Amino acid sequence: MRTLLKLIVFVILVGVLALGGLRLYFGGGAPYPALVGSPIVAEGGLETVLSHPEPIGNVAVSAAGRVFFTVHPEGQPTGPTLLEWRNGRAEPYPAADLNEALLETPLGLVVDRFERLWVIDSGTHGLGRPRIVAIDLTTDRVVHEHVFSREVAPRGSFLQDLQVDPAGRMIYIADTSFWRKSPALLVYDSATRRTRRVLEAHASTLPQDWTIRTPIREMKFLGGAVTMKPGLDGIAVDPTGQWLVFGAMAHDTMYRIPTSALADEALSDSDLAQRLEALGKKPLSDGLSADLSGNVYITDVEHGAVLRMAPGGGLTTIVRSPRIRWADGLSFGPDGWLYLADSALPQVVLRPRGHIREHGPYHVYRFRPGTTGVPGH
């Protein structure tokens, strides 16, 4: 009996110490001041494009108006994870058998100017095979596939967003690295298949000490021991291809860096840091997109909104709606529409499958912000 009592006490102590360690490493976080204002697009201007029983990841729209989306890995999907919305229903893309063989945990996707759909797959936070895939939308065939090495996509990495330069060659990938806490930017040359991991754990890519608060819940878990404070997340390429714009989710500042510097392999991280420019204050954000005038559209994950940052850093609230549970990925489509994936993460992250299904369906919306962007971006 005494031995059993000692064992129980030991287990409790280990649990308390583990919880304390989690709180020290992942906990904390202050409330973030709201930057959202009155939207210029009325509630009626926010249209529902599609509904799906499983949580949406990201969305990409082609110049012809084809709509593609991923199922969010946090939703514990059991079927196809990359889909196309056709004739009012979601169809596996590419075909179901190839979809399953090709992809593990895809999330970010974008259509480049050559009508190729690029998809980034974290390989279950780097535990599997992180990879990038490109599919030619004119033939629906895979035209590029590359598995990243452990050096550039280590265990605990989370490759979750990407953008393609106007030439269709250089690919920029955000490693949020939530569990590893070492976010970085990957620069992938699709012609040479060489990858650089840069700005790793730099102040611009690391999260700050903020707690994300939504009307549904604060993004804290395990009794408050773990606060969701992601690092580098959204990225966008300006229409000239000269600048890469990026922001960490739990960070107050948007940055940009010349793409010519990212392409220069002679530059060290300290050299690249010298070329960073702060654009302005931003909300706690997820996806980004740029229009043809150089404005950057920023999702506000706390307030169900999308804001626009002008080249000078000024913010305008474009849309805000109680229907938006978590403003995630953005993609410009034809005719001036900006598409928004709502991943509803407050009702998805670390939730059981039954809870996730119960709070469906999940949606992609669209609205017209009054400017035009490159389709897919």
Results as ranks from 00 to 15, higher is better:
Leu279His: 01
Leu279Ile: 10
Leu279Lys: 05
Leu279Gln: 13
Gly280Cys: 08
Gly280Val: 11
Gly280Lys: 03
Gly280Tyr: 02
Gly280Asn: 12
Lys281His: 14
Lys281Gln: 14
Lys282Phe: 04
Lys282His: 07
Lys282Asn: 06
Lys282Gln: 12
Pro283Phe: 02
Pro283Ser: 03
Leu284His: 02
Leu284Gln: 12
Ser285Ala: 15
Ser285Val: 04
Asp286Tyr: 05
Asp286Trp: 09
Asp286His: 10
Asp286Asn: 14
Asp286Leu: 09
Asp286Ser: 11
Gly287Asn: 09
Leu288Asp: 05
Leu288Gly: 10
Ser289Leu: 10
Ala290Met: 13
Asp291Glu: 09
Asp291Gly: 07
Asp291Trp: 08
Asp291Asn: 11
Asp291Val: 12
Asp291Thr: 06
Asp291Ile: 07
Ser293Cys: 08
Ser293Thr: 15
Ser293Tyr: 13
Ser293Asp: 15
Gly294Glu: 07
Gly294Trp: 03
Gly294Ile: 08
Asn295Pro: 07
Val296Tyr: 11
Tyr297Ala: 08
Tyr297Arg: 13
Ile298Asn: 02
Thr299Glu: 11
Thr299Met: 10
Thr299Pro: 11
Thr299Asn: 12
Asp300Lys: 11
Asp300Glu: 14
Asp300Cys: 10
His303Lys: 14
Gly304Asp: 12
Gly304Thr: 08
Ala305Leu: 08
Leu307Tyr: 05
Leu307Ile: 09
Leu307Asn: 13
Arg308Pro: 13
Arg308Glu: 14
Arg308Phe: 08
Arg308Gln: 15
Met309Gln: 15
Met309Arg: 08
Ala310Asp: 14
Ala310Gly: 11
Pro311Leu: 07
Pro311Lys: 11
Pro311Cys: 11
Gly312Leu: 11
Gly314Lys: 14
Gly314Cys: 03
Gly314Arg: 15
Gly314Trp: 09
Leu315Trp: 05
Leu315Phe: 09
Leu315Tyr: 09
Leu315Lys: 03
Thr316Glu: 15
Thr316Gln: 15
Thr316Arg: 14
Thr316Ala: 14
Thr317Val: 10
Thr317Cys: 13
Ile318Gln: 04
Ile318Pro: 06
Val319His: 05
Val319Tyr: 04
Val319Gln: 03
Val319Gly: 06
Arg320Val: 04
Pro322Cys: 04
Pro322Gly: 02
Pro322Asn: 06
Arg323Phe: 04
Ile324Leu: 11
Arg325Pro: 00
Arg325Val: 10
Trp326Gly: 00
Trp326Thr: 01
Trp326Asn: 01
Trp326Met: 01
Ala327Trp: 00
Ala327Asp: 03
Asp328Leu: 00
Gly329Ile: 00
Gly329Glu: 01
Leu330Trp: 00
Leu330Lys: 06
Ser331Leu: 00
Phe332Lys: 01
Phe332Asp: 01
Phe332Thr: 06
Gly333Arg: 01
Gly333His: 01
Gly333Pro: 02
Pro334Ser: 07
Pro334Ile: 00
Asp335His: 12
Gly336Gln: 00
Trp337Gly: 04
Trp337Asp: 13
Trp337Glu: 12
Leu338Cys: 03
Leu338Asn: 03
